[in-house]
Design a protein around this nucleic acid. Sequence first.
DNA 1: TTGCAATTCAAACAGTTGTATGAAACTATC
DNA 2: GATAGTTTCATACAACTGTTTGAATTGCAA
Lengths: 223, 223
Amino acid sequence: MASDHTRSAILAAAERLYADRGFGDVTLRDIVAEAGVNLAAVNYHFGSKDELIAELFVTRSIATNRERLRELKAAEEDGGGRAPIEVILRALVGPTLRGCLGPENQRSTAARFMIRASIESVPPIRRIKNREIDHLRKFAGAMRRSLPDRSDVDIYWGLNFALAMAHHTIRESERLTKLSEGKCDLDDVEDVVARVVSVATMALTAGKAEAKAPARALARDAR
Amino acid sequence: MASDHTRSAILAAAERLYADRGFGDVTLRDIVAEAGVNLAAVNYHFGSKDELIAELFVTRSIATNRERLRELKAAEEDGGGRAPIEVILRALVGPTLRGCLGPENQRSTAARFMIRASIESVPPIRRIKNREIDHLRKFAGAMRRSLPDRSDVDIYWGLNFALAMAHHTIRESERLTKLSEGKCDLDDVEDVVARVVSVATMALTAGKAEAKAPARALARDAR
DNA sequence: TTGCAATTCAAACAGTTGTATGAAACTATC
DNA sequence: GATAGTTTCATACAACTGTTTGAATTGCAA
């Protein structure tokens, strides 16, 4: 408790290495070498390798979640308990996108770590992600208040698609850049946020009956 | 060459195990035990563990890609070289969704394997996915022909979002079911396809100038 | 049958992994 | 400055990994 030096040196080194090389091929020995501490230090301070990874991920994701809720709460207070759907969606995907995209050379270690965490799915992180449901429910609630005419099903699908676009864009940002030959500028984070929010809003506010019927009418049977 | 028996027994056993337990904790010894063959057989027939995984994944994904292109080609021929955007999008996301969703108890081993492959990202599979760009370009081309007024940037973003919604829904289908308390029915695959296609279509056909500007106007600065 | 190649097999190999141990070094309190 | 508690360290451990080897077996052609 006196000197957290070793502890935080390990955290920093681990985050850096995982960010750069992924979870797959970073061993405890790599981490302690980078941190300049003894091999046994990890198990002494964190219990196990998985608990180290979990602590890293938890720290970063509660920070993001706090930021999300802060934006959400501010928006609902502004609107007297009811926020515009665009603002809610912005609070949902904005912090994550801002945290993970942007010019690569000025991307923080934390950001690069979180990208890794969303690309490579490793057991301790997956366990934590599964507990994120309560957090998402708060957004579902706000969305329901914002769009009282919408059915729950539509709300959940809208939420799902918003997260889908944000996370997939982060995960596959490299591929999108390559595919579009650089025409899609992933460094312009606010543009990305605007695009995601805009599409998610359309998904949530489009004419209710139309959503299913016409799409179905276009169904073609596979020969 | 004479008897592929061992070879295909390995492929089948590996696919089954990976589908059930993920890539993380299935060893060669697990596979050969399940297949009832000798440990050395994997290296004899496939060269290495990674090449075995790669062969599994390639087989399944060329099947999906072929199906996609078949639908796309049929649609474009129907329309004299220009297909409606909904049909193109349906050809893009339909085969994947149909292959991976649907009632769990009647989900094929192949489907469960592909879900795993999209959740756990393992090196040999990632290498293959990176070569999928050429395939996606064909869809970008068809979309451009279908929406000649749209800019390339918008086309690529629409493509990206369509894939995002499809893949994320597959990856997180369990979470969406839990979050919505079963209200979102992921077993009704055609409904899922219709929802994805509908939203992606809106993303691609919404008023051009509006896409960016109004969303930006709603931007709030963090206090 | 004989000969030759393809396949199977048991066994060992070589390397790496996360973790545990017990002694040494340190730190702060009295 | 002795003591008790914390932290560091070198080292060993035990298990597991994918891969290789070389001999046995099989299948097929001449």
